[in-house]
């Protein structure tokens, strides 16, 4: 119980702040609660199936399989698969982090995970179609063409920047997210 309260401390404090805020400015406060509740509904709608798929992936897909296709030495094929998986995703960026954790457990290389995160953040296919229709094909295609090399370059810089030891720590941490 005490542990639970501690974990949700940030949420509880913020919740109280929002209540106080609502007492000061009722209109904006209620609007804030409304938007939060709406986003929460969205999360509840989108997130559970993603976690179920992840749980099953974790149990059924053997590590060797993931290492072969997305691990160290998976080469350009691994890069393309990571790109496609990230782009086929749906939902906000924070949905990508738990997926990345399972990928780490399954031995996917660090650079491929970073490419996956990059693709999820900005080259999602459904979002791209939406971008074409609202901001025009020229805008959307230009952005896509810059983003593809951009994501790879960012992944490579990060890989260089993070030491082997730090990478090990990150992978070790991923082992513990569901235990």
């Amino acid at each position: 119980m005490k542990k639970t309260v501690k974990r949700y401390r940030g949420f509880l404090i913020l919740f109280v702040i929002m209540i106080v805020f609502t007492m000061i400015n009722y209109e904006i406060g209620m609007k804030a609660f409304g938007i939060s509740a709406n986003s929460f509904k969205e999360v509840l709608f989108l997130v559970p199936p993603i976690f179920v798929i992840l749980g099953l992936l974790d149990v059924w897909v053997p590590r060797e399989f993931m290492v072969k296709y997305m691990g160290e030495g998976s080469g350009i094929r691994g890069v393309i698969i990571s790109f496609l998986l990230g782009s086929a995703a749906a939902g906000p960026l924070y949905g990508a982090f738990p997926v990345a954790a399972v990928f780490m457990k399954k031995g996917v290389s660090f650079s491929n995970i970073l490419i996956f995160i990059g693709a999820w953040s900005t080259t999602k296919i459904p979002m791209f179609l939406f971008e074409v229709s609202s901001l025009g094909p020229k805008f959307a295609f230009t952005r896509l063409l810059i983003n593809i090399p951009g994501i790879i370059i960012i992944a490579l810089i990060l890989k260089r920047f993070v030491t082997k030891y730090e990478r090990k720590e990150i992978y070790l941490n991923a082992e513990n997210v569901d235990s």
Partner: peptide
């Protein structure tokens, strides 16, 4: 595993949602 992974990020997720609303 799915439930534990979800519950693990729930506190931070709730904070994010409140900040978004504000």
């Amino acid at each position: 595993k799915a439930w534990k992974a979800f519950e693990n990020i729930l506190p931070q997720l709730l904070v994010v949602l409140l900040i978004v609303g504000l």
